[in-house]
Design a protein around this nucleic acid. Structure first.
Lengths: 410, 410
DNA sequence: TAACTTGATGTAATCGCTTACAGGCGGAGG
DNA sequence: CCTCCGCCTGTAAGCGATTACATCAAGTTA
């Protein structure tokens, strides 16, 4: 104990978290600069201090505690908890009892780290509020749970910076597989995912590669079915209502619409309009469309959400559907069956897509080799109440016929 | 090299994952039992074999690789990546360059483990498809992201065994805080969560404790507003449509309905009916209600989802809303604004709830001390198109008045 | 210049778990 | 009886980060 010099230099890497400077004493004098300046560091707003003082989370029990209580080694406890059947029955029950009494829950981070792998899948979706995305997520999760896998979701809100953050997160979590069901993917991110060597499934974006599979729905076929159906009813003045997205599926629907119309109904008049996604988007777009001078007999919407917004707006303006204008959606979300009038739309089998994604991501979940391929899924036309023969034909004395096409009715 | 005895006994704990038994040779003879019996173990279905052969995930780069490339120690790399400003500028850029080139992503499991804490919050919801739950989740996530926190969701599907699994998972992940926005919580689980010492927020269940906060909406007040409003319009034959749930909020709404009716309108006739949750539930319940003999002038639904189902069913049966029957919902989900007629309902401020939950869970996010308390949030009546004076009054020559009550209109 | 501080970085312990490997022990084979 | 096998369990080395402490050079004070 040399009382000559007590130099308590306290240095910590974690200074950004608990920035405490202890007073420094050397030869009994105040060294170097003004001490009060340093102590100032300690004068922190109470709220801020509390924020910084978020200490280590009180550690829960660990394997060792259980092992000690059961009188065995950590290895044995681990073996019991992992259901390795190499442990003697009596030891096993003793361990389980100890774990139960201590209310032990294994630390999954430590487990993932030690195992070097885990049973967690990630899924990126643009908008969980949209039942379309939800259904895929839900089907994926069901399949996963039945095989002991977990699923973590990231909702990107259609914001690409959020998407980047989510991708980083998923890679950081070292998920065993990742499903990207988003519309805002760009090549830079695809590269990042490829590099990560995590098995990936893209929905509707990109091309298959080594660890990348592509699941896509044949939108062209679906849009063709709609246009052909409307054509068979006799519609010639059609408006297509899209939304502002330059990306794949959306523009593909628009393109197919145009192609099909010009092919099967060369004399048709066509109008293309856009709004933002969602209910309000459809509503506003419909208002603009009706005041634009173009007088459609049918409005083909890029998805059900917009279509429901359109229905709402038409109703407000006193336009009867389908007598005056027919409206169609796309996706067949649940809502489309319950809005009024019920929506004629195209069904996309979300459950099958989610299931398929799981089979692709988890090797051994399916007997087929699916990874690295492109998987195409067929949509179906669903005819409900929002479409009928156009008003000119009705005026001409035709009886509105509903069973014109061989469409599926559900 | 003793050629006398080559005993290659291969034993591995991981036998449940890669159950390979190598042939055993001792003194050149086949020992103990029939060798073919053991080799049989090797004869495995190819698919199964592949399943078991899921090797270690190819390790991504780790800190050490980056450190080596940059010519520094792992400590320095860690300091750079954590933005500790103790590192020299030139070193810093060198490290960042190396990390970039190697496409390094830190392993978040290792980070959580080493730090003993993390910035992840968990949220349990009964049904993400219900926009009510989604909105809370979404608000929570927004608040979290703006403070560098992540959010993981677990969807329990109203299944209690799923809830138990999710709680286990969250505890295993050592989330920094957990929001339980579920209706199927039981005391056993609450105990489990209390024991975990994780900060918890319950929505509408349980009582505040040490690490448990309770956020609840004053449903009584909301239901009172609805009944009073209908009463002021002149309704006297009201039906309440609930769903089969013995739990808190649902039965509370029913109870308050009954209390309020008997208090302010003692002569009213009342009918209580039930269905399952959701659109179909409402639809079926409405059908049963109408064929029950009771002839209501107003149907008060326990939530908007059921109300929309009811609207749909009434429309199918040719009953006009609100002229013949008024319908009200509860929650003010987005759909209630877009269905037809737009629904009179009670607005629950989900954004504020989500935001509040974050402030409670993360110490320092708010200046108030919120943890361990009970927080009560006020709902508001939203009058739209689905309610009006009852038909008897209309027949009596009254002019339907919309502005009877001081309700908020949005 | 001696004594001390500061800045920048390396060394190594640690987080909680998994699992390869090393015994100990009892029973079967010869 | 000796040998070997298989069952069961313990020991200890990782997994990939964080961070307390040590170190060393350069700068500052008196």
């Amino acid at each position: 104990m040399t009382s000559s010099s007590i130099s308590t230099r306290k240095y910590s890497d974690a200074c950004h978290r608990i920035p405490v400077l202890l007073p420094v004493q050397a030869h009994g004098r105040v060294p170097f600069g003004d001490l009060s300046k340093r102590l100032h560091v300690l004068r922190i707003e109470p709220a801020v201090l509390e924020f910084f003082m978020v200490g280590k989370q009180i550690p829960l029990l660990n394997l060792e505690a259980v092992a000690k209580r059961a009188g065995v080694s950590t290895a044995t406890v681990s073996r019991v908890l992992n259901n390795l059947n190499v442990v003697k029955g009596s030891t096993r029950t003793r361990v389980l009892k100890a774990a139960e009494e201590l209310k032990y829950h294994p630390n999954l981070h430590a487990r993932s780290l030690a195992r070097g792998k885990n049973r967690t899948l990630g899924i990126l979706v643009s908008n969980m509020e949209n039942p379309f995305f939800f259904d895929i997520y839900h089907a994926l999760e069901s399949a996963a749970h039945s095989c002991g896998y977990e699923v973590v979701v990231a909702n990107t809100d259609y914001r690409s910076e959020q998407l980047v953050a989510s991708v980083r997160l998923m890679i950081g979590w070292r998920v065993a597989g990742l499903a990207a069901v988003v519309s805002e993917m760009d090549s830079h991110l695809i590269q990042m995912l490829t590099d990560s060597r995590i098995p990936i499934v893209f929905y509707d974006v990109g091309t298959p590669q080594k660890n990348i599979t592509n699941v896509r729905v044949d939108y062209r076929k679906g849009m063709k079915k709609i246009v052909e159906y409307l054509h068979s009813l006799g519609h010639t003045r059609m408006a297509f209502l899209g939304h502002h997205s330059t990306l794949g599926p959306i523009s593909e629907r628009k393109k197919t619409f145009l192609e099909t119309v010009t092919r099967i109904s060369p004399n048709a008049e066509v109008h293309i309009a856009s709004g933002s996604d969602g209910l309000e988007g459809g509503r506003l777009a419909a208002r603009e469309l009706l005041s634009s001078g173009f007088d459609p007999t049918a409005i083909i919407c890029v998805n059900d959400f917009m279509a429901v917004g359109v229905l709402r707006q038409l109703r407000d303006q006193g336009v009867r559907v389908p007598e005056e204008i027919s409206v169609t959606g796309f996706d067949n979300i649940k809502l489309s069956e319950f809005c009024s009038p019920a929506l004629t739309t195209v069904h996309i089998p979300r459950e099958r897509i989610g299931q398929k994604i799981f089979e692709i991501l988890v090797p051994g979940a399916s007997s087929d080799r699916l990874a690295g391929q492109e998987i195409l899924i067929d949509p179906e036309l669903v005819v409900r109440e929002s479409t009928s023969v156009p008003r000119s034909e009705q005026a001409g004395g035709h009886i509105p016929k509903r069973s014109v096409s061989p469409a599926v009715v559900r």
